[in-house]
Simulated assay, not measured.
Amino acid sequence: MQLAPIPTLPSRLASRGIDVLPGVLLCALIAAIATVIGACVPLVGSAIPAVVIGVLVAMIRKPAARLAPGIGYAGKFVLQCAVVLLGAQLSLASIVRVGAESLPVMLSSLAVCLLGAWVIGRALGVDRDLRVLLGVGTGICGASAIAAISPVIRAKSADIAYAISTVFLFNILAVLIFPVIGHALGMSPHAFGLFAGTAVNDTSSVVAAASVFSASALGFAVVVKLVRTLMIIPISVGLAVLEGRRTGSSERLTPARILKLVPWFLIGFLAVATLTSFGAITETASGILTTVSVFLVATALAGIGLSTDLGAIRTAGLKPLLLGGILSLLVALTTLSVMAATGAL
């Protein structure tokens, strides 16, 4: 692979900045409006208004092509940066503790989801690749898992678009419904963090749902979600082996290839948490970083709202959509059942 020369890096970065700036500014403007709404109605927060405003704007008038790079940039990279900054709230010891606590709930819901995707998907007549994408998207971490798994199973672009659109639809429903369920069941912020981090399938929606429920639930929910994101690695490796056997063209799984399956923002989150653990990030700095992170989340969700493709769901039929809904329900019910059985509810 030929690398671009280092001397051209500043000009390339400047060009990229010019491309994404208009779209990012639009998302930031929506985030600012959503922040004002959240300040006036604290129960709503800034996450839901950002998504709703973004979707409404996209429905009324599709954003111009020159805004697309920045909208996509906000919906992905800005969100990942927000997650990295949330590491300032936690220490490595708390991450290990949360991982150990959430493991039974996480593994149970993932197993039920993957099994349900295979059995129910086949019964509904959903295409194999789409079953796999919906299963990993719902069971692990939404669009990130779908993006990681797609090249492994050589999924078609239409299947990828449908899976991401379906997962996103139920993410939005989770943001609206899960806080209501949490309050109805009298969950503590700690319990809701475990519930949202396990049963909601995309990082943005986990952050949004936890933010709506309680600010103190946010950090715990994110850690649970990030620990769950690590499941991309064994699932990707397993699918790569199965795909190789099915096609007879297995590609060697080197440590470097496996390492590439780990999302960079997970590494960044752990790095910031490490700095926090050693006192490099003060309490004041942690508060500032958390505030910035919340605004970045609203900016990212505005981008996701603006880029929502409602037509992709309408044109692909209802069976995969039905499968996505069933899987989301199975994950939520399994999570609640295991939490109740283990005394975590």
Rank of each mutant, 00 (worst) to 15 (best):
G317C: 10
G219L: 00
L43G: 12
I258T: 07
A300V: 06
V83G: 02
L185A: 08
I313M: 15
W118H: 15
I313T: 04
G45N: 05
S46W: 06
L322P: 06
S46T: 10
A47S: 15
L176C: 13
R16K: 09
A14G: 12
T308E: 00
R66Y: 13
L3W: 09
V212T: 15
R122M: 11
I120W: 07
C81Y: 02
T334H: 00
T8D: 14
L43F: 12
A100H: 07
L110D: 10
I120D: 10
I53V: 13
V207F: 03
A298D: 06
L85F: 12
L133W: 05
R97K: 14
A39V: 10
M106S: 08
V132Y: 01
V78R: 04
V200S: 05
G72E: 02
G139Q: 07
I60R: 13
D309M: 05
G287M: 02
L322G: 11
K62A: 14
L239D: 00
L327S: 01
V224E: 00
R154W: 08
L133S: 08
G186Q: 03
T35I: 09
A341Y: 05
L176P: 02
P320Y: 01
T290F: 05
G186Y: 02
V112M: 11
G116E: 08
V52F: 14
V241I: 15
V180Q: 13
A174L: 06
G244C: 05
L130Y: 01
C141V: 10
V51K: 06
A123Q: 13
L130E: 07
L242W: 13
L242S: 13
I95Y: 03
P49A: 11
T198G: 04
P49C: 09
G279A: 09
V36W: 15
V83I: 15
A93R: 14
G238H: 07
Y162G: 03
K62I: 12
T291A: 11
P255G: 06
R314Q: 15
R128D: 14
P151Q: 11
P151H: 11
F278P: 00
L110W: 06
V98L: 12
A210F: 04
F195S: 04
I95F: 03
P42I: 06
A31Q: 09
G38K: 06
V24D: 04
A47R: 03
A215S: 14
K319D: 12
S102R: 01
M231W: 12
V24S: 07
I172H: 02
L270I: 10
L3D: 12
S307C: 03
L185N: 05
L321M: 10
I267D: 10
L67P: 00
A34D: 13
V272I: 15
S337K: 08
A58Q: 14
L230Y: 03
D127F: 04
I267E: 09
L239S: 07
T335S: 15
G244I: 05
A58L: 03
A344F: 01
P179S: 07
F168H: 04
K260C: 01
Q89T: 10
G72R: 01
V44R: 08
L185F: 04
A341G: 00
A65I: 08
S46P: 11
I181G: 03
T334R: 03
P234S: 10
K260A: 10
I60D: 05
V57S: 00
G238R: 01
V132K: 05
L185P: 04
A158G: 01
R252W: 09
G142N: 08
L194K: 02
A58F: 03
S102Q: 09
